[in-house]
Design a protein around this nucleic acid. Structure first.
Lengths: 155, 155
DNA sequence: GTCAGTGCAAAGCTTTTGCAGCGCG
DNA sequence: CGCGCTGCAAAAGCTTTGCACTGAC
C-alpha cells in the first residue's frame, strides 16, 4: 500500500509549485513570505496536511508565520482550485490539487489513526456513472473509508 | 431524486427507534428524558441532522434539553453503532444506522447547499473490491459528492 | 506611495468536560 | 436510595475576523 501512496504523492510534485505560483500571479496576487512558505510546505508533504501541521512545520523551520496566514492562504488556494479540502474527522486537511484532474482518496485506520491514500479507476467510474444517473453535475468528491489497516489486522 | 431519498429515509424508520431503545437497555443504560428526546428527533428526521439542529428542534418543541446532553447521547449512540457520523463540511451530522447494514451516501449542491442522499450498488461493489485489493478491512465508509443539483443546473 | 499581505490577538463556532442536583431502576 | 442522566456553564479545540503595520509592486 505504501507503494501506492508514494506514487500518488510524488508523481507531479515539482509541477504543482510552479503551477500554483503561476495561477496566483495570474489572478493578480502578490507574493508574500507567509504565502510562499505555505506553498512550499504543501509541496513538500503533499498528502493530508492540517493547517496546524503546516503551521508547526513552518515554525520548526524558524519561519515566523501566523496561523491566520496559513488559514488565509489555504482559503485562497482553495478558491483558486489549487488545493483540495478533505474532512477526515476532527479537523480538515489540505493537499495540492493536481492540474490533470487526477486525485486520490483516503483510508483511515480506526485503530492506529494512520491515514493512507489510494487511487481506484473502478471507483471513479462508479461515481461518474452515478452523477449521470442522478442528473447531478459532480465536480469535487471525496471518499473516506474507515477500517483496520493490514498492520493492525495482523496484530 | 427526491424519490430515492424518501425511500432510503423512510424504509425501516419505525424499526430503528425500537432497535435503538433495545440496544441501549441491553447495554445497561437507563432511559432519561433527554436521551429519549434525541432518539425521537433522530427517528423523525433521519438524514443528516447536526447536533445543533437536534437541539433547536427539541427546544422549539418545548423540551428543556441541554446541548451537552445532545452531544453525549450522540456519542453514546455512535459507540453502540446506532448512528452514523458524516463529516459533510463545517459540522458533523448524524443519522440512524440501519441494522441491516444498508446505508446511503450524500450529494451536496455547492450552489444552493442542499444535501441529498443516494444509494448505489455499483459504488458499494467498487468499495468492497478496493478493500480486498488493499488488504484493508473496510468497515464504515462515507462518500461525499459535491456539485450542482438538477435545479441549480437548470437555473 | 498604495494597498495587498501579514502577525498577533480576540472573537466565533462546534464539541467536550466539570459539577451539582434530579430521578430512573 | 445509589448512581446514571441531566442542565448549565465553563473550557477546549478549530477557524475566522479586526487591526495596525510591513513590504511588494
Amino acid at each position: 500500500l505504501s507503494g501506492i501512496i508514494r506514487r500518488v504523492a510524488r508523481s507531479k510534485q515539482s509541477r504543482w509549485l510552479e503551477h500554483a505560483r503561476g495561477e496566483l500571479e495570474h489572478a493578480g496576487h502578490r507574493s508574500g513570505g507567509a504565502r510562499s512558505a505555505v506553498l512550499e510546505a504543501l509541496d513538500r508533504e503533499p498528502c493530508c496536511l492540517t493547517a496546524q501541521e503546516i503551521f508547526d512545520n513552518l515554525r520548526t523551520d524558524g519561519r515566523a508565520v501566523g496561523i491566520a496566514s496559513v488559514y488565509r492562504t489555504l482559503e485562497l488556494l482553495w478558491n483558486l482550485n489549487l488545493v483540495r479540502r478533505v474532512d477526515i474527522g476532527a479537523s480538515a486537511c489540505y493537499e495540492p490539487e493536481q492540474p490533470g484532474g487526477e486525485h486520490h482518496h483516503h483510508l483511515v485506520c480506526e485503530r492506529c489513526g494512520k491515514v493512507s491514500a489510494f487511487e481506484d479507476a473502478r471507483l471513479e467510474d462508479a461515481i461518474q456513472r452515478l452523477g449521470r444517473r442522478l442528473e447531478y453535475k459532480v465536480g469535487e468528491h471525496e471518499v473516506v473509508l474507515r477500517g483496520a489497516c493490514p498492520d493492525c489486522r495482523a496484530a
